[in-house]
Design a protein around this nucleic acid. Structure first.
Length: 305
DNA sequence: CATGCGTGGGG
DNA sequence: TCCCCAAGCAT
């Protein structure tokens, strides 16, 4: 959960999530969609799907336990250098470094390095520095936690609290007045614009949802049926739906301009004509978490259903 | 190695 | 309103 997600967002979900999946075996014995459902709203849903796959690897190959070696951890789906380092150092007390966004910011400021944190060879430099740091520490867990926490609480992206910083005296960014420009911003990518149709389709308290195709935006998620506009289709769902609203929705990579259509029991057939084999299902509005989250919630609200 | 992947809060 | 960014990873 903590991969590229603020601690406070993860904390909100953690207790519930752990009650649902108290052990790797319990998750492995359940379905992927159960995990994705519990994850809904957190974003980056590949993490949820990876986690379910990971649980099955633990069940089938490691007796339901987490292997405590770098090699084994890095081979698990969704586990990279950061996650493996965190598990080994914080859980296992091993001398392994962690570099997250916070740590990178602290190191670059201390060094007065004005390069973007993702520009080669900066990442390797950061891992080496963090490796020397944790090697010199009595407790790898405390050292790594402390370094991340320093970045999160004191050496913040804007307005760092240098007056409270234990290493302010040896910080080059501080000495040169560069704390606001380090770390340097990397080249910005333009958010591409796409046009989509969405179908808000309600019948007797149930809502039509469709599973997004793997490899596309929101792959594997259960959402209000959505189609990307490719040609110049005026009425993508025929006469079965009426135009209800227009909404804009941003993801990290693109801005979606969505034409929202409203329909009833006829909607499923309209979707079926558009998409061969689209996995649609009617779900209860009251008990389905998808209804209250993300793009689906926005579309339903805009459609007034 | 550059890019894609969500969402929500803060400035 | 708009941009930045968050306990990254896979491809």
């Amino acid at each position: 959960m903590l991969q590229q997600t603020q601690v406070s967002r993860a904390v909100e979900r953690f207790e519930t999530f752990m009650r649902l999946f108290p052990s790797p075996n319990r998750m492995a014995n359940g379905t992927e969609s159960a995990v994705v459902r519990a994850w809904s709203g957190l974003g980056y849903y590949r993490r949820a799907r990876s986690l379910h796959r990971l649980a099955r690897v633990l069940r089938d190959e490691y007796g339901g336990r987490v292997p405590m070696s770098m090699e084994a951890l890095l081979a698990l789906p969704g586990v990279g250098r950061y996650t493996a380092g965190a598990i080994l150092s914080i859980v296992g007390g091993q001398t392994e470094p962690i570099v997250d966004g916070n740590v990178a910011r602290v190191i670059l400021r201390v060094l007065g390095d004005e390069r973007p944190l993702d520009q080669a060879p900066v990442p390797e430099l950061l891992w080496e520095w963090a490796g020397e740091f944790v090697s010199a520490a009595r407790s790898p867990a405390v050292a790594n936690e402390g370094l991340m926490e320093l970045g999160a609480m004191v050496c913040t992206p804007r307005g760092p609290k240098c007056g409270e910083c234990p290493v302010a005296k040896s910080c080059r960014a501080r000495a040169r007045g560069l704390t606001e420009v380090i770390p340097a911003k990397s080249r910005r990518v333009h958010r591409r614009e796409e046009h989509w149709h969405a179908l808000a389709c309600v019948n007797r308290g149930r809502l039509l949802l469709a599973k997004r195709p793997d490899g596309e935006l929101w792959g594997g998620m259960l959402l209000v049926p959505m189609l990307r506009v490719t040609g110049s289709t005026r009425r993508p769902f025929g006469d079965a739906a009426e135009r209800a609203a227009q909404v804009t929705f941003d993801t990290s990579a693109c801005r979606l301009h969505i034409s929202v259509w409203r329909s009833d029991s006829r909607g499923a057939a309209a979707i079926g004509k558009r998409r061969s084999g689209a996995a649609t299902s009617w779900v209860s509005r009251a008990s389905s978490p998808e209804v209250r989250v993300g793009v689906t919630a926005r579309i339903l609200e805009a459609a007034g259903v």
